[in-house]
């Protein structure tokens, strides 16, 4: 390790401060009362107002809180990422380990999805989900229906997921699956018990990346969810922010923003390496 020039260090520290200080400010402002916030942007809270957080979670002055949206987002994210990994791994396994005619074409078709802008498809997608009706499951169509949003999330996450996983599946040795089949394991067993565990590092990169992506997703949810009770966290936060501009409790609003940020912060702290890997993988293809 060597020391850089003081100028370089000053610049690095300066920019880091620009990233970190707004977050520190957010943390201590979330513990202030609204009059305190109005009085001085810099001052620390006189005494921490923890009730800001309960107001943010369970609602303030007749407004809904973030609590229900938080659980909605949890359900959607867990369900979607589980399906993305399962379906993505299955497709990638087929395309990389069984070199049938057309496999490369299908792989390219999947991966090319990484460059399509979502907004090009958003109107037809909305109309498609709105008009697809299945009696018993979705009599009014798949808008405002989590099955619809989950399916859309899975479909739009497949290009990246297949791309990332293909690198890992290609690197797996042939001998292991052969050994497994000699030992009498069926095809599905070989896939699930032998090959999937070996591709675990890839599944973690894809999983972390998709969890963050879906937890944060806004435009598709905005278009496909109109019923307030089904809002995701980003939709809920956006709505509360836009309404609260004319309202009173800014302390609670800061607390709400912090609550939204905390899970991603935690994931980033644990999986920082996988996040950079995922970002790089997505970038270099493009």
């Amino acid at each position: 390790m060597r020391r850089g020039s003081p100028f370089v260090y000053a610049a690095l520290c300066g920019y880091s401060l620009l990233i970190v200080f707004p977050l520190i400010w957010l943390v201590y402002t979330s513990l202030k009362s609204t009059p305190e916030i109005f009085k001085s942007a810099w001052a620390l809270p006189e005494s921490p107002r923890w009730e800001n957080f309960s107001a943010a979670w369970s609602g303030m002055s007749g407004e809904p809180g973030l609590g229900p949206y938080f659980w909605n987002s949890c359900t959607l994210t867990i369900l979607s990422v589980f399906l993305i990994l399962a379906i993505g791994a299955m497709a990638t396994y087929a395309l990389t380990r069984f070199p049938f005619r057309g496999a490369q074409f299908l792989m390219n078709t999947f991966v090319s999805g990484m460059v399509f802008p979502i907004f090009l498809a958003v109107v037809p997608l909305f109309l498609l989900l709105n008009q697809t009706r299945i009696p018993g499951i979705a009599p009014k169509g798949f808008v405002d229906h989590y099955a619809g949003l989950v399916a859309v999330y899975v479909a739009y996450s497949l290009p990246f997921t297949v791309f990332v996983l293909s690198g890992f599946f290609r690197a797996l040795p042939n001998e292991l699956s052969e050994a497994a089949s000699i030992d009498g394991a069926g095809r599905w067993q070989t896939f699930a018990r032998v090959m999937l565990p070996l591709a675990r590092p890839g599944l973690i990169v894809a999983g972390v990346f998709n969890v963050i992506g879906i937890w944060n997703e806004y435009p598709l949810a905005l278009v496909l969810i109109t019923d307030r009770s089904r809002y995701t966290l980003p939709l809920g936060l956006a709505q509360i922010t836009q309404r609260q501009q004319y309202s009173v409790d800014f302390g609670a609003l800061f607390a709400a923003l912090l609550l939204v940020l905390l899970p991603t912060m935690a994931i980033y702290l644990i999986f920082q390496r996988q996040v950079s890997e995922g970002l790089m993988a997505g970038a270099v293809k493009g």
Partner: peptide
């Protein structure tokens, strides 16, 4: 046997991708 296995692996992903990504993109 292998062909059926490969189709089974690919079907869910391809169907979702075709109907929810490629089809709406083209339809637009």
């Amino acid at each position: 046997g292998t062909a059926g296995f490969v189709v089974g692996l690919l079907a869910p992903g391809l169907l979702l991708y075709f109907f929810l990504v490629l089809w709406p993109m083209g339809q637009s």
